[in-house]
C-alpha cells in the first residue's frame, strides 16, 4: 500500500488539513501503525511537487500540518489509475523461514523444534487476532481475517515442511 495514493484518495472527497488527513488515515487504515506527522509532511510535499495536490489555504499558527490541501485533476487521474491497476501478487519466494530450516539442517540443529516453535508463535498470533476479531467491528474482522488467512497459509507450509523434513534433510546434506 502506498501512503501517497491513500492520502490522495482521502482528499478526493474534499480539501483537508494535514492533521485531518493523518486522523482520517489512522482511523481507517492505521490500526497498529499510525502515521507520523513527518510522513504526512514529506508525502504531501512530494505530491505538491508532482502537481497532484495544491495548497488550498493555510491556518494561522504555521507548521506543515496547518496547511489545507486539495486534489488536482491530475491527482484524480492518478488515483483512478492506481485503483484500476491490479496489485502484483506477492510471490513469497524469498522466505526467511525456509532459510532458517535449511541452515538448521546444515548445521545439525533440530529443525523440527524450530518449526514447532514457529508454529506455536504463528498460532499465538492467530489466537490474538481471533480474539480481536470477536470484539471488533466489520473493518476489524476483515483486516484480521486477511492476516489470519496469511498466517494460516504459513502454518500450512510449516506443517507440510515438518512432514517432509526427512526428505529435505537428505537433499540438503547430499
Amino acid at each position: 500500500m502506498t501512503i501517497g495514493h491513500t492520502l490522495l484518495g482521502l482528499l478526493e472527497s474534499g480539501p483537508r488539513h494535514g492533521y485531518d488527513l493523518k486522523r482520517a488515515f489512522d482511523e481507517r487504515f492505521g490500526h497498529d501503525r499510525p502515521l507520523h506527522y513527518g510522513q504526512v509532511y514529506s508525502t504531501m510535499s512530494r505530491l505538491l511537487k508532482n502537481g497532484l495536490v495544491e495548497v488550498d489555504g493555510i491556518e494561522p499558527g504555521g507548521g506543515p500540518e496547518r496547511k489545507r490541501y486539495a486534489i488536482t485533476d491530475a491527482g484524480v487521474t492518478d488515483v483512478a489509475g492506481w485503483l484500476t491497476t491490479p496489485e502484483k501478487p506477492e510471490p513469497y519466494l524469498q522466505s526467511t523461514l525456509y532459510t532458517k530450516v535449511v541452515l538448521a539442517l546444515l548445521t545439525g540443529r533440530d529443525a523440527a523444534e524450530l518449526l514447532d516453535v514457529q508454529r506455536a508463535e504463528h498460532l499465538r498470533l492467530m489466537r490474538e487476532l481471533t480474539r480481536r476479531k470477536k470484539g471488533g467491528d466489520l473493518a476489524d474482522q476483515l483486516i484480521c481475517d486477511h492476516a489470519l488467512f496469511h498466517l494460516e497459509a504459513d502454518l500450512r507450509w510449516l506443517e507440510l515442511t515438518a512432514a517432509r523434513l526427512g526428505k529435505l534433510a537428505a537433499e540438503v546434506r547430499a
Binding site: 504463528h122 489466537r127 488467512f149 494460516e152 500450512r156 515438518a162
Partner: peptide, 16 residues
Amino acid sequence: HEPRVAAYADREVVVR
C-alpha cells in the same frame, strides 16, 4: 485440522 478454527482455542496440542 484447520488452524483458523484452532485459533479459537486458548492453546493447542499437536498430535503427530
